[in-house]
């Protein structure tokens, strides 16, 4: 419904305002630009997709491991959590040039930026789930003589999987933002780079087509992660 309504509204604005195509191209022109430049857009999309997938994987693993370690040790939580919150107060936009300087113009700097963006939501969501196991269940485990490690493995982690799913769904939306920021700051390929290039040459239709490709990629990623998370979120199914 939205997919049908949005282009109509878009076209309506153009008819009403008579805005020039280099400011706001029509949906039809964008579709044409997408088709004509399909090879170029696909090539840059693959680069961005690789950065996003790598960032998502590394960020998810780091976030998951950190959450488990923080949940195992109250002292680690007291020491590390304020640091994590502090890192979130630094805008990634401000860090991107430094990270590009440190990690180069290739894949690494984009992955690092994506990881920085998704690390906290994944850690925070999973940690929340790990520490919200009902006290009655933990009491029962204690009377059974449960070890800390087995309680984590057999009770806390399975209980927190739906929360991890929520964190990963957020990460799937944030990771492309990180990759594109990295490409804007310094890159020779990727959708962010293509958008800057198109913008500089007043090829607004190509810029919009790249943006569309990015939106589709994010949507597909969100759906895929959402489907994977749904498996985590239905533990009560017989």
């Amino acid at each position: 419904m939205v997919a049908l309504f949005a282009p109509l509204l878009w076209q309506g604005v153009i008819w009403l305002t008579d805005v020039p195509a280099f400011i706001l191209p029509s949906p039809w022109r964008v579709a044409q630009a997408a088709w004509i430049n399909r090879a170029l857009i696909t090539q840059h999309s693959l680069v961005t997709a690789t950065e996003v997938a790598a960032g998502l994987a590394v960020g998810a693993i780091l976030g998951t491991v950190t959450a488990v370690l923080l949940a195992l040790s109250a002292r680690a939580h007291r020491m590390v959590m304020p640091l994590l919150v502090f890192t979130q107060s630094l805008p990634v936009f401000a860090l991107a040039p430094i990270l590009t300087l440190w990690f180069g113009y290739g894949l690494a700097s984009k992955v690092v930026i994506a990881v920085l963006i998704i690390y906290f939501p994944v850690t925070s969501a999973f940690y929340d789930g790990l520490t919200r196991v009902p006290a009655d269940i933990l009491d029962m485990a204690k009377t059974m003589g449960a070890t800390k490690f087995q309680t984590m493995r057999r009770i806390k982690i399975p209980h927190a999987l739906p929360s991890l799913g929520t964190g990963l769904k957020l990460a799937a939306v944030y990771a492309p933002i990180g990759a594109v920021i990295g490409e804007w700051v310094g890159a020779s390929q990727g959708l962010g780079y293509l958008m800057l290039l198109a913008n500089g040459r007043a090829k607004t239709d190509l810029m919009f087509a790249s943006l569309l490709a990015l939106a589709i990629m994010t949507l597909v990623l969100h759906l895929a992660v959402g489907r994977a998370s749904a498996r985590l979120q239905r533990p009560e199914q017989p």
Binding site: A141, M144, G145, A146, T147, F149, Q150, T151, R154, I155
Partner: peptide, 8 residues
Amino acid sequence: VLGAQLRG
């Protein structure tokens, strides 16, 4: 058998 598993 949860008890045994929790005790390893």
